[in-house]
Amino acid sequence: MLLGVPKLDRVMGEVREGDVFLIETVGSLGVELLSEVILNNREKRNVSIILPKGASEKRVLPAEGTEVMVLGEDVHAERLYEILHHIRELPEGSVLVAIRLDVLFLLRPREAVFMFMEDPVSTVQKKKIILIMTVDKRNVDERDMAVFENLATHILDITEIVKGFKVTLVMRVKKSPKGSTGFCEFEIEGGRVSINGPPNAL
């Protein structure tokens, strides 16, 4: 599967079935990129989205042609089991998008979150499902982020750089089979993502 952003696809290479793609971000930064990935792949693949209740990302993500599962305000064990059951029932080659998994740390004990994560990751690898996760860096400490990073085959780091009155959106490939890159600028124009950066970035 290609993400659909040519410059990024050239650097990261193809995301293969069974791969785990992690987007480290702040709030909903980069959700347009995720939306573009879904739009570029929903005709070819079954797409399911897991997101927390009231997530602002829902307004930007394409609803047509996708199945959405919402985490409730109180994420109890029964709800997590329902989601795991849904993941196990997904057809081979599907795309599973998990938005803001860091919210689980606010609702469940750390050990329960890690136990929950082991199951979907092993399931997507067995069933050759592509898993794309986003994590808000503000809600996860370095130790917890390391757990997510160890699970991932590809990591994209998105953040903002503030210089004076100018705020710039930047991204870097933190981990992929082809290696990593430095930060480069990216912009969203008319719902499309464009990347501008020096050769040593992207």
Rank of each mutant, 00 (worst) to 15 (best):
R10W: 07
R10N: 13
V15S: 07
V15C: 01
E24D: 05
T25H: 00
V26D: 05
G30A: 05
E32W: 09
L34P: 04
E36K: 12
E36T: 14
V37Y: 06
N41L: 02
E43T: 07
K44L: 01
S48K: 09
S48A: 12
S56K: 15
K58G: 08
L61N: 01
E73P: 06
E73W: 00
Y81T: 11
E82D: 13
H85T: 15
I87G: 05
P91F: 04
P91K: 10
G93R: 00
V95H: 03
L96R: 02
V97H: 01
D102T: 04
L104H: 06
L107S: 09
P109M: 14
E111K: 15
A112D: 14
V113C: 09
M115R: 14
E118D: 15
V124D: 01
Q125T: 10
K126Y: 13
V135A: 11
D136G: 05
D136N: 14
D136M: 10
D141S: 12
R143G: 11
D144V: 10
D144G: 11
V147N: 13
E149Q: 13
A152L: 03
T153N: 04
T159H: 01
T159R: 09
I161S: 15
G164Q: 11
F165V: 13
F165D: 11
V170I: 14
T181G: 02
E187M: 08
G190H: 14
R192D: 12
V193I: 15
G197R: 06
G197V: 05
P199K: 13
N200R: 11
L202H: 00
